[in-house]
Simulated scan of single mutants.
Amino acid sequence: MKALIAFVLLLLLSPLTVLAAPVASGVQPRVIDVTDKAALRDGANTFVGYCMGCHGTQFQRYQTVADDLGIPYEQMLQTLAPAGASIADPMQTRLLPDDAKAWFGAEVPDLTLITRVRGSEWLYAYLHGFYADPARPRGVNNTVYPNVGMPNVLESLQGHQVLDCAEPTAQPCTRLRVIPGTGSLDARQFDDKVRNLVAFLAYSADPVQTKSRQIGLYVLLYLALLILLAYLLKREYWKDVG
Rank of each mutant, 00 (worst) to 15 (best):
I5P: 14
V8P: 08
L9R: 13
L10M: 00
L11P: 02
L13Y: 03
L16W: 15
V18Q: 15
L19P: 10
P22C: 05
V23G: 14
S25Y: 10
G26Q: 08
P29G: 12
I32H: 06
T35V: 04
T35Y: 00
T35C: 00
K37R: 09
K37E: 13
A38P: 04
A38C: 04
A39L: 09
A39S: 10
L40A: 06
L40N: 09
A44G: 05
G49Y: 11
G49I: 12
Y50C: 11
C51I: 02
H55V: 03
G56Q: 02
T57K: 03
T57L: 03
D67Q: 13
D68N: 06
G70Q: 11
M76A: 02
T79P: 09
T79M: 06
A83P: 03
A85H: 11
S86M: 12
I87D: 08
A88Q: 12
T93A: 12
L95R: 03
P97K: 05
P97Y: 08
A100G: 05
K101S: 09
K101C: 08
A102N: 07
W103D: 08
F104Q: 00
A106V: 14
E107D: 10
E107Y: 01
I114E: 11
T115A: 00
R118W: 15
W122N: 09
L123R: 01
F130T: 06
Y131M: 01
Y131T: 00
A132L: 13
P134H: 04
P134Q: 05
A135F: 12
P137D: 06
G139I: 05
T143A: 10
V144Q: 01
N147T: 01
L154P: 01
S156D: 11
Q158P: 06
G159T: 05
V162H: 15
D164G: 10
E167C: 04
C173L: 06
T174D: 15
G181N: 13
T182D: 05
G183A: 00
Q189Y: 12
D191A: 01
K193C: 15
V194F: 02
V194Y: 02
N196H: 13
V198D: 01
F200E: 07
L201E: 11
Y203W: 14
A205D: 08
T210E: 12
R213E: 10
R213F: 08
Q214K: 05
Q214N: 07
G216S: 02
Y222P: 15
L223V: 10
A224E: 12
L225H: 07
L228N: 11
L232V: 08
L233A: 15
L233W: 15
R235T: 09
E236I: 08
Y237G: 06
W238P: 09
K239S: 13
D240N: 07
V241K: 12
